[in-house]
């Protein structure tokens, strides 16, 4: 085995991949949110539709988005590998456990939270990304240029209260996932220092509340506006 594969197969190497892909996905969330917030601009979806089309055509963004999918895949595959590995490390469990006294719930249930988020992601991709790429989408014309009217699809989806509820709850899962994942990624990378770690912790908590909350705000607002 080469040193690279040896490293990536070690527990620390696997954690490293989890942390790096996790941090990238965190960054992606910010970019994605910035774009999505345009849904709330009261221009009938013009800014959003133009933004979506521009992004889709930008070659750099296309590369990044392929990377993004790859990272999600790595994050998911390695989490499954690690979960199985960790489970094997304790074949017989304890009959009684008071783990709640020594660690946060989210930190112990990243796998469950991750799975729920993955389900959300699949539904989300099917509903919007797939439609945008391969579906029959109505168009809109701004200043003589024809754009796919993704806004319409989104607005339609968000008029369904169940769909909105699904989104909001899923963002709750994301919040819990991030509440541990954000700071944990830094810890895994070895970035733990008395001077900076308290800040990382705080930013992590802030991030895990703010970002999912803003994401959740979009369907709620659009539902209320509809």
């Amino acid at each position: 085995m080469s040193w690279v594969s040896k490293t990536l197969n070690s527990t620390l190497g696997r954690k490293l991949l989890m942390a790096l892909t996790g941090l990238f996905l965190i960054l992606f969330l910010v970019v994605h949110l910035a774009g999505n917030l345009q849904l709330l601009i009261p221009d009938g979806g013009e800014s959003f539709n133009i933004y979506a089309e521009t992004m889709a055509k930008n070659p750099l963004i296309r590369v990044v988005s392929i990377g993004n999918f790859a990272f999600i895949l790595i994050h998911v595959v390695y989490s499954i590998m690690l979960s199985r590995y960790n489970k094997a490390a304790r074949p017989i469990g304890f009959a009684e456990s008071k783990a709640n006294t020594n660690s946060a719930w989210a930190s112990r249930n990243m796998g469950i939270l991750g799975t729920l988020i993955l389900i959300f992601l699949l539904v989300h991709l099917r509903g919007f990304w797939y439609e945008f790429k391969f579906g029959e989408i109505p168009t809109a014309v701004y200043e003589g240029v024809t754009y796919k009217n993704v806004y319409l699809i989104v607005a339609e989806a968000y008029s369904n209260p169940l769909y909105v509820l699904f989104y909001v709850v899923s963002m709750g899962f994301l919040a819990f996932h991030l509440s541990h994942g954000f700071a944990s990624a830094f810890q895994t990378l070895g970035l733990n220092h008395a001077k900076y770690s308290p800040l990382i912790q705080k930013v992590g908590i802030g991030f895990s509340i703010l970002i999912p909350a803003l994401f959740a705000l979009i369907p709620i607002m659009m539902f209320l506006q509809a």
Binding site: T11, R14, K15, N86, A88, R108, M110, H180, T188
Partner: peptide, 20 residues
């Protein structure tokens, strides 16, 4: 680290339970 892995101990999820 290699030996730790070879012994079959799990990976770290940074829950902090050990420290607590």
């Amino acid at each position: 680290v290699a030996q730790m892995d070879a012994e079959g101990f799990g990976a770290c999820t940074n829950t902090g339970a050990c420290e607590a």
